[in-house]
Write a protein that binds this DNA or RNA. Sequence first.
DNA 1: CTGAAAGCGCTTACAG
DNA 2: CTGAAAGCGCTTACAG
Lengths: 329, 329
Amino acid sequence: MATIKDVARLAGVSVATVSRVINKTDFVNPETAGQVLKAIEQLQYEPNAVARGLAGKKMGIIALILPDILNPFFPALARGVEDVAHKKGLTVILGNSDDLGLKESSYIKVLKKKYVDGFIIASNTIREEDVEALRKERIPIVLLDRGLNTASCAVIRSNNREGAKIGVQHLIEQGCQRIAHIYGPQEFITARERLLGYEEIAKGLSGYSPSLMVSGNFDIEGGRKAVEQLLTRHPDVDGIFAGNDLMGVGALKALHERGIRVPEEVKVCGFDGIGLTEITEPELTTVAQPIYEMGKLAARILLDEIESGIRENSIIELDVTLIPRKSTQ
Amino acid sequence: MATIKDVARLAGVSVATVSRVINKTDFVNPETAGQVLKAIEQLQYEPNAVARGLAGKKMGIIALILPDILNPFFPALARGVEDVAHKKGLTVILGNSDDLGLKESSYIKVLKKKYVDGFIIASNTIREEDVEALRKERIPIVLLDRGLNTASCAVIRSNNREGAKIGVQHLIEQGCQRIAHIYGPQEFITARERLLGYEEIAKGLSGYSPSLMVSGNFDIEGGRKAVEQLLTRHPDVDGIFAGNDLMGVGALKALHERGIRVPEEVKVCGFDGIGLTEITEPELTTVAQPIYEMGKLAARILLDEIESGIRENSIIELDVTLIPRKSTQ
DNA sequence: CTGAAAGCGCTTACAG
DNA sequence: CTGAAAGCGCTTACAG
């Protein structure tokens, strides 16, 4: 492969000049520039990204750390990030943290050494200290779903509480009176917010009882178990608002197994809007987050910060959308 | 951040010596080594991966290029790759090619400039020329699903033809006589092989007809449309072998819409073994590939080649497993 | 067993 | 408008 030296030699200029025309970082006499361009063309020269990275401390890489790409919520997010990164000529490194603070920290450490341009972290367990450290080193970072009190970096999330209210409200409109909620792990801010939204609306219902709230661990199996538990406590439940789609799917399964018809006897609404909701029988009504868009937005904000060097501290809360389907009507 | 110079100074040795103890690349007097280690500890020194990359032409990065992480087949593959890479201290860059040869080539070009250690390419459209070029530059590469005649690099794939035979055989054992096949795009070797496997078995059936084979484009919508087409041609079909799970799901949907009961009237079997198959109603019987394992294996072989420098040309064909579920029994 | 020095391929003040 | 040179932070022959 040709190097910048080869180009310089062929064009009869210094490497500095070649660098200037490549990066458009300084004015170069148009004629000289022409020579250089011709030499580049002729040698099929492509700048070496690693040498560039070493000199400039940026490798043109975005680090995307998320809990688990196997969780069907994340592929769309990753795709969103990758699409905008790719358009800008950047590349993305993917790390699965399994929501383990330790693993996250270890990724951050490794990736800083690789001079990634910035981090996008979709995590419920990211440590404040890690974020602070990144900030201090002026490495751009945007967080997904996190960053409550600490507005020390850009945060993107959906309006989870509002979404929960919309979901519960929808169940009420469909005629439900005894509406249960399957909630996710309460150490996750998203799960907490959705539970709060549920409570806010459900509390006003005549059939309300705190024991209508059951924990479900954000996965299919958890949703299934939650429903079993729920049915022994409240056989008369007629609506279930699941804290995410996976638990909604689990709920559907449990109800089906017991021969309880959805939506006739019990209506079910999920949260997230992942693809799975379209293949259950009946299809699952859900409060959809704009997942792909969130990924794109995160990448855009990060790229802005990388380019401008201007710190971004805003918290952006995206709107969710109710997608009514067979499971509630 | 401390550099190798700082360590050298503090330990009272040259940078070469520090480099030697870090990389265990040469014998170093144990006492000297001790000093160095102490200095490293004291300064919390971590070698700069980019400088290392520039000097050694390897960034400790695996490039994983796949069609689309949104396709539920690929997250497990990616996770497998990432898990073994992470264990070895490597990091993985993810690229979505959308099965576009052009996009693949562009990724390869960009990533070569970033000195990735090797490529894992899960693609149906990868160009021979790209593979050859990589081989010539001695950049390790392992392919998934591809590499028929050209055994010029390691290839990992499932035994697709055998799998198809197993699936069809299963349908026969469950009492099906008129078994249809929904096939994927025939430019994909996997789709071709599965079709061949189907034919091999189905041809022997008394109710066999070539018009029982319908094209389905490897997605849900394609599967659905294929079934509609199929039912007008062959209302008496009693078994459907779908070329992948997504089309199997589509088939289930189409049958459900028409009020045709599965498995009573028609039995359906998919291929791949993705998670979706467990949430349909009824759950979908499928011929499962060991997807996660394929990812791990691909990464292991690639890492071996990276470490040893020894070219790997073997074609590894993994066994598939029938997972019988409600949709066929 | 260890050091001095060149090299990896760029970028970027500093001069002119 | 352009060049010489230092610097980014390592690795690796080459000597000794």
